[in-house]
Write a protein that binds this DNA or RNA. Structure first.
Length: 418
RNA sequence: GCGGGUGUAGCUCAGCUGGUUAGAGUGUCAGAUUGUGGAUCUGAAUGCCGCGGGUUCAAAUCCCGUCACUCGCCCCA
């Protein structure tokens, strides 16, 4: 076959088998969100470009090289959303959701778009399930938000995950630390890799996480003071209480002082969940606090915290761990029909059974019984109904249980009722 | 944006240093079993050898380009 069209680079079809997994995961997530009191919000897939450039940060990689921008017929600059938070914050303000009881807990699911080079666990369109909570600055809320996603992962049977945690400080304390790092690394730039030379100016926090040996050495092999020692009192107590909260909620975690996230809006708490089953992309969930973003978008100062996890990566971990999700096979009946008269009966019977909520399939072409039985087997039908000359003559049906192979004659009435 | 690998049947892949009608397993379809699936046996169908160009008497094989996939870097879910 000579394919005329293929899916756009970095996009993927989710076929029925995988879609069933997605459905199952989303159902679990919905259940968990419900128990934590979240409500769903659906926001547009594209927004004015400025929303993202301002929200995520002009200099971030996502904004500078990964956005799907376009102009519409009126010349408006629009962008396919690369992440979920900015749109939800915009919707929160535009619809005056701040008049609702606080804290307001929202969840969403939807596609995100980033123009990246595709690779294991990374696509140009990926689906995120995420939450945003507005109106509380309590560290115990941070803890609960983390517990929410950990609960989902636990319910799905995931193992070997590590929840990483850090505080990157707020407007009060972070500038002093980045200034210190910037100063230090520009003075000691000789040993840095090309990337880190750029980072020294742009985002010196990242240098602490570089894998290059020389950069590690230049960074003092872990002897440089970390962000922790620069945190202001508020950030410090917040971070301590968050950890206390996680212990109360039974969430195991690991503090990772090198954990930095790619969006500019984060303040204080940041966190990620990693799996070693994913190749180079190990994060399946990321999030944090963003106490200044609502205000930057023109609202009142409103603390907020959120996370997002990626469906594709989550499914990859589930598969890599060999987890078999309890997906139900839904085909109740397959009707085998022999001859034109039986076919008509089969159509009528299918309609009756479907009225009672049963799932029913049958073939529309004349095929011998063997071929039809084979199809029933391939479709994993629970039961097969056979209608042939004998059954027509006696006004009954032959009902076969595909699991044990047993079969018996039943009346139409009994079948519909049972 | 930068590197490495790979494109052969629906799927997984073999085709060595160029040489005749391009193979295997699996799946599909048919038959053995004319009213019975999952096992076994027999048989059949299926390929612009990713695409374009070049070298050559001759290219799936060598060279260049291109596209796609894939694994890394950066970054991120």
């Amino acid at each position: 076959m000579n394919l005329k069209y293929t899916a756009a680079r970095g996009t993927k079809d989710v076929l029925p088998e995988a879609a069933a997994k997605w459905r199952y995961i989303k159902n679990i997530a919905r259940q968990v969100f419900n128990t934590f009191g979240y409500e769903e919000i659906i926001t547009p897939m594209f927004e004015p470009t400025e929303l993202f450039t301002r929200g995520i940060g002009e200099t971030s990689d996502i904004v500078t090289k990964e956005m799907y921008n376009f102009t519409d017929k009126k010349g408006r600059n629009l962008t396919l959303r690369p992440e979920g938070t900015a749109g939800v914050v915009r919707a929160y303000l535009e619809n005056r959701l701040y008049t609702l009881p606080m804290p307001l807990k929202l969840f969403y699911t939807g596609s995100m778009f980033r123009y990246e080079r595709p690779q294991a666990g990374r696509f140009r369109e990926h689906v995120q399930v995420g939450v945003e909570v507005f109106g509380s600055k309590s560290p115990y809320l941070d803890a609960e938000v983390i517990a929410t996603v950990v609960t989902i992962f636990t319910k799905l049977g995931l193992s070997g995950l590590t929840t990483q945690l850090n505080s990157i400080g707020c407007k009060e304390c972070r500038p002093a630390y980045t200034a210190f790092l910037r100063d230090y690394f520009t003075k000691n730039s000789a040993g840095l890799c090309d990337n880190c030379k750029l980072r020294a100016e742009k985002n010196p926090l990242r240098i602490m996480d570089c894998k290059e040996e020389n950069c590690k050495k230049t960074a003092g092999g872990g002897n440089l003071p970390g962000m922790a020692s620069y945190l202001c009192v508020n950030c410090k107590t917040h971070f301590e209480e968050l950890q206390k909260g996680l212990k109360l909620l039974g969430v195991t975690y690991k503090v990772n002082e090198a954990l930095v996230r790619g969006f500019d809006y984060y303040t204080g708490t940041v966190f990620e969940v990693h799996s070693e089953k994913l190749g180079a992309q190990t994060a399946i969930m990321g999030g944090g606090r963003y106490n200044d973003l609502v205000e930057e978008f023109g609202g009142d100062k409103t603390p907020a915290v959120g996370f997002g996890f990626g469906m594709e990566r989550l499914v990859a971990v589930i598969d890599a761990l060999g987890i078999k999700l309890p997906l139900e096979n839904t085909l109740d009946y397959f009707i085998v029909h022999l001859g034109p008269e039986a076919f008509e009966k089969a159509l009528e019977l299918a309609a009756l059974l479907r009225k009672t909520g049963k799932s029913v399939k049958l073939l529309y072409e004349e095929k011998n019984i063997k071929a039809q039985m084979k199809t029933a087997d391939q479709l994993k039908a629970k039961k097969v109904i056979i209608i042939g000359e004998n059954e027509l003559k006696d006004g009954v049906l032959l009902l076969k249980d595909m699991a044990d192979g047993s079969q018996k004659r039943v009346s139409y009435e009994n079948l519909i009722q049972g």
